[in-house]
Simulated assay, not measured.
Amino acid sequence: MHLQIENGWLTKAKHVPSPFFDARTDKEDISLLVVHNISLPPGQFGGPYIEDFFMGCLDPNVHPFFEVIHKMGVSAHCLIKRDGEIVQFVSFLDRAWHAGQSSFAGRERCNDYSIGIELEGTEFIAYTEEQYQSLTLLARAVMQTYPLITPTRITGHQFIAPLRKSDPGLSFDWVKFRHQVNADL
């Protein structure tokens, strides 16, 4: 399977446009891919809660943790669910609100120039083979469309905000992922 991007959107993905984005300062400067993780409620998989969160309609009465986060106003460009399904929330041409205070190679404000991909998961539970396959296909499509992003410009949230974040965590197999991304390049 091959993924394509047209006008900032994956052609073969579920599109759930989030209200939490704004214009990039420079659409020619898309030069970093950031891998994250998320699970809602924490440590639980499945259900509509991640999509609800990125859409700003998470019901705070469903779970005590939702009371804390339901008004946060955050998004990622894409989510890869446990079964490998890709959901896109924000056009790659726009700035998603995923990295927060961050720095890569000495450059601040990673949201300005990065694409954020969330994996449904936690730092301590292995990601699925389907997620690695989808992430590899997505990363290759992103690198083909936005050539400033190379395999060396793919990183984890934990590396751009090391004192604040720990995702995608120890459970993410960077060696495996980098091998898959670099195969046949």
Rank of each mutant, 00 (worst) to 15 (best):
E28R: 11
V68Y: 12
V87Y: 01
S91K: 07
F20E: 13
H98F: 15
Y49K: 08
S166A: 09
N182T: 07
L170R: 15
Q101M: 03
L3G: 08
G46D: 01
P147Y: 04
F66H: 07
M143E: 05
Y113T: 03
S75N: 06
V68K: 12
V16G: 12
K176M: 12
M1G: 15
T122Q: 06
Q131I: 05
G56F: 09
P17L: 13
I115L: 11
V74E: 07
I69H: 03
G8W: 11
F21M: 15
F124W: 06
R178Y: 07
F66D: 06
E85T: 10
R178L: 15
N37W: 14
R164L: 14
R178C: 04
I125P: 00
Q131S: 00
D26R: 08
H77P: 02
Q158R: 08
D29W: 06
D112S: 04
A141V: 10
E85S: 03
L137G: 13
L10P: 03
K165A: 04
H179R: 14
Q131N: 08
L58E: 03
F21E: 08
T11F: 01
A99R: 01
E118I: 06
D26P: 12
R107N: 03
P19V: 14
G116W: 01
P48D: 15
F45S: 07
I86C: 01
I50F: 04
Q144N: 13
F65L: 10
A99L: 04
K71S: 09
P17R: 15
H70A: 03
Q144E: 12
I115E: 02
I115Y: 00
A126S: 13
I160V: 15
Q133R: 08
D26K: 09
T11S: 14
V16C: 15
G43M: 07
E85Q: 06
D167V: 10
N61Q: 05
P151N: 12
E108V: 01
E6N: 10
F20C: 08
S39G: 13
R164N: 10
V62N: 03
G47Q: 02
I50A: 01
G106N: 03
F45E: 05
A126D: 12
P60S: 13
D173C: 02
I5Y: 09
P19W: 06
G47Y: 09
R153P: 03
F89P: 00
S134M: 11
L148G: 01
S134I: 14
Q158L: 11
C110I: 05
D26F: 12
E85D: 01
R153E: 04
Q101E: 08
K81P: 02
D59C: 02
Y132M: 07
R24V: 09
G56T: 04
K14M: 08
P64Y: 08
